[in-house]
């Protein structure tokens, strides 16, 4: 099991590295209450098969990474990722895939290091804004309301579909809520903006959303924050797209990525 101390936190990292030493690095960022496993068993192997140097890690407090008491805001997560890449000697540009919160972190990273990102794929995710933080508060409040009540959990969207998974998520949420400042940190609006200036994202961007997800109903507003990007809507799917429709996600991700695998060569052209 590989652990790396990044930004002062011990992070669990798995790297699927092809033989080619020049393979472009690609980082997978999972969602809240989740772990790198959500990629590991879905698209990670296929992405590595395209010739990417795939780096998967557990966010702080998640999976097998260390669980410090605090530091769960979007900038903390970005700092962790920066630290991780520094420790791995990855100077970029990197390709990023983020699911849900992981996508929000990826957006922030791309905003802070415009030269550091070669392409960005976000699944069921949006950039951090004041409005996003407000919705995150609602979501977490809803989750915390259900925390102690198994029947309530069963009634949620996820609980109805996969009770075991919903139970697990609520248990993790409870653990994190008790042991850390995650809820405060994520919903802290300091430093968040309402809108982004033109040209804030410069890399190619693919947005994947579930056709029945809440995010889909706000898709226009989200796309409005972004530069021109590719959007794939997976019909009939809810938020947990990666878990329930890995095939569809792979079908959207793989050809898009394959076309951008060598994007770096273009970037250096005089």
């Amino acid at each position: 099991m590989a652990h790396i101390i990044a930004n002062g936190v011990r992070l669990h990292v798995q790297r699927m590295r092809p033989a080619d030493p020049g393979a472009p690095p690609l980082v997978l960022i999972h969602g809240l209450l989740d772990t790198m496993a959500s990629y590991y068993f879905t698209i990670a192997a296929a992405v590595a098969g395209l010739g990417f140097d795939v780096i998967a890690y557990d966010l702080r407090g998640h999976g097998r990474s260390e669980r410090p008491r605090q530091g769960y805001g979007v900038d903390d997560a970005t700092d962790d990722l920066t630290g991780l890449l520094t420790e791995l000697g990855v100077a970029g540009p990197v390709h990023l895939i983020g699911f849900s919160w992981g996508g929000t972190v990826a957006f922030r990273f791309a905003h802070r290091f415009p030269d550091g990102v070669a392409s960005l794929i976000v699944i069921e995710s949006e950039p951090p804004t004041v409005a996003w933080a407000d919705r995150a508060i609602d979501g977490l409040r809803e989750l915390s309301a259900h925390l102690s009540d198994a029947e309530e959990v069963a009634r949620t969207e996820l609980g109805a579909l996969v009770p075991a998974m919903a139970r697990r998520l609520t248990r993790r949420a409870r653990e994190l809520a008790v042991a850390t400042t995650l809820v405060e940190d994520i919903t802290d609006r300091t430093g968040l903006v309402d809108v982004y200036p033109d040209g804030w994202l410069r890399c190619p961007l693919l947005l994947i959303v579930g056709g029945d997800s809440r995010l889909h109903s706000r898709l226009d507003a989200i796309v409005g924050l972004l530069p021109p990007c590719d959007v794939v809507v997976v019909p009939g799917q809810h938020h947990q797209l990666l878990a329930f429709a890995p095939g569809e996600v792979a079908a959207a991700v793989l050809p898009w990525l394959a076309a951008r695998r060598d994007a770096r060569a273009g970037a250096v052209a005089p």
Binding site: Q14, M36, A37, A164, R168
Partner: peptide, 18 residues
Amino acid sequence: FDADLAFESIDLVVLGTL
């Protein structure tokens, strides 16, 4: 793995590397 060992999916990742 799930019912008896209470394996989390992340445990499976680690098992995979082992």
